[in-house]
């Protein structure tokens, strides 16, 4: 009984993050909760890198069994003309022990429903195992990675929750990184900027989409 209450209390405290653990109820068990999205210039500044992290707050032990789902499509949406509608998508989905990538390509339809155009296949990479050297692949100027990584996000979420809850009036100095020592399931793709449309700036967002 006491153990049960303690668990509920801890679960309440651990809630939320950057977007960690905001998984829609419908996605429970489907590995579809996005924790963070990054978009930055690559080591080769002719390229942009997109990283989409899912399944936040994985302990090292939990990471050993964490998996991508074959029913969850991870989609990077790219808007070239500032109307917040995707002009290009990059899609990633697991099949077997590999992550397959499509695009950047113009989707046949925009919005909440997507299909995968196999003619837009751009590469694949073996999903890296926990604790192993990361496996990457390169194809047509693009680079691909999928597997467990350290969560790059850092935030004293615990103290922020205490402030919101009225039990603290400010942050501590130094703060405590709630995400220290935790992992995510990461998908990283590096793309030549020339494949991302002719405009000088983009609007980017990630979605997870579940197979119906």
């Amino acid at each position: 009984m006491i153990l049960g209450l303690a668990f509920v209390a801890i679960a309440g405290l651990i809630l939320v993050a950057a977007d960690h653990i905001d998984a829609p109820a419908t996605m429970t068990g489907d590995s579809g909760d996005i924790t963070d999205v990054y978009a930055f210039q690559g080591q080769d500044t002719n390229n942009l890198v997109f990283a989409v992290n899912t399944q936040g707050l994985l302990s090292p032990n939990a990471t050993t069994t964490a998996k991508f789902s074959e029913n969850v499509l991870v989609e990077i949406n790219i808007d070239n003309n500032a109307d917040n509608v995707e002009d290009l998508v990059i899609q990633a989905i697991k099949r077997g022990d590999k992550m397959y990538f499509f695009g950047p390509y113009k989707p046949s339809a925009t919005g909440a429903s997507s299909t995968i155009s196999t003619s837009a296949a751009s590469g694949s990479v073996a999903i890296s195992a926990y604790g192993a050297t990361p496996v990457t692949s390169t194809n047509n100027g693009m680079k691909f990675f999928a597997g467990p990584r350290d969560d790059p996000f850092f935030f004293d979420l615990g103290q922020f929750k205490a402030i919101l809850g009225g039990t603290a009036t400010g942050f501590n100095n130094p703060g405590t990184d709630t995400f220290a020592g935790t992992n995510v399931m990461a998908i990283v793709v590096e793309v030549p900027k020339t494949m991302l449309g002719g405009t000088s700036s983009l609007n980017v967002w990630a979605e997870t989409k579940k197979k119906q």
């Binding site: 950057a18 996005i34 969850v72 980017v204």
Partner: peptide, 16 residues
């Protein structure tokens, strides 16, 4: 097989 329709469940861009 990559067939099927996939429907949005989670969306994210700016952190937090």
């Amino acid at each position: 097989d990559f067939s099927g329709t996939y429907v949005q469940q989670d969306q994210m861009a700016r952190p937090a």
